[in-house]
Computed example of a mutant assay.
Amino acid sequence: MSELDKVDRAILSALQSDGRMSNARLAEVVGLSETPCARRLRRLESAGYIERYRAMLSRPALGLGVVAFVYVRFAVHDRAVALRFEREVLGISRILSCHNVSGSADYVLQVVARDLDDYGAFMRDELRGLPGVTSVESALSLREVKANGSLPLP
């Protein structure tokens, strides 16, 4: 599928708001009957526009009161070390995202923790020991302004 039409965008937008929406409700929202809606949805899934469905959990309800953005730097830029670092990061659930970036840092991580003590222990016991890491700098989130996770649709 190379081009999204108005109905495809409406389907994707509706599902970004409510991924548990039934096909009947989705068809109603986008103005289709159920069978064509289901067919379009399967096509959007198979074309890779929809990667997966999942629930958005509440950080506060789970006791995760700290969000930190961590700038990780390497002293030596060795591809094998970077790949080992990336493999290790994939296995750490409190790291919500990891981006290899340009600029003064090599990676930017988004990390959650229960509180500052928990975050400090994570830094000391896990993050600083990862392959290649020579320095880290943290920016703690004071207040989350936006985090809906929805992508803009072309």
Rank of each mutant, 00 (worst) to 15 (best):
M21D: 07
N23I: 13
N23Q: 12
N23K: 12
R25L: 10
L26E: 09
A27W: 08
E28T: 11
E28H: 13
V29C: 11
G31E: 14
S33Q: 10
E34T: 15
P36C: 05
A38Q: 14
R40K: 14
L41K: 13
L41T: 13
R42K: 15
E45A: 15
S46H: 12
A47T: 04
A47F: 06
G48I: 04
R52L: 11
M56L: 13
M56E: 12
L57W: 08
S58C: 02
A61K: 10
L62T: 05
L62S: 05
L62A: 09
L62Y: 05
G63L: 04
L64G: 05
G65R: 08
G65Y: 04
V66C: 09
F69L: 10
V70W: 02
V72L: 03
V76R: 11
V76E: 11
R79W: 14
A82T: 12
F85P: 07
E86Y: 04
E86I: 09
R87L: 12
E88I: 02
V89A: 09
L90I: 11
S93R: 08
R94I: 00
S97G: 04
H99V: 04
V101M: 02
V101L: 01
V101S: 02
G103W: 07
A105E: 00
D106A: 01
L109Q: 00
Q110E: 11
Q110I: 05
V112F: 01
A113M: 00
A113W: 00
R114P: 03
D115K: 03
L116N: 05
D117L: 11
D118N: 04
Y119M: 04
G120D: 07
G120P: 01
M123C: 03
E126W: 06
L127V: 02
L130G: 03
G132C: 01
V133Q: 04
S135A: 05
S135F: 04
V136L: 06
V136P: 01
A139H: 06
A139Y: 09
L140C: 07
L140N: 07
E144N: 13
E144T: 12
E144D: 15
A147M: 14
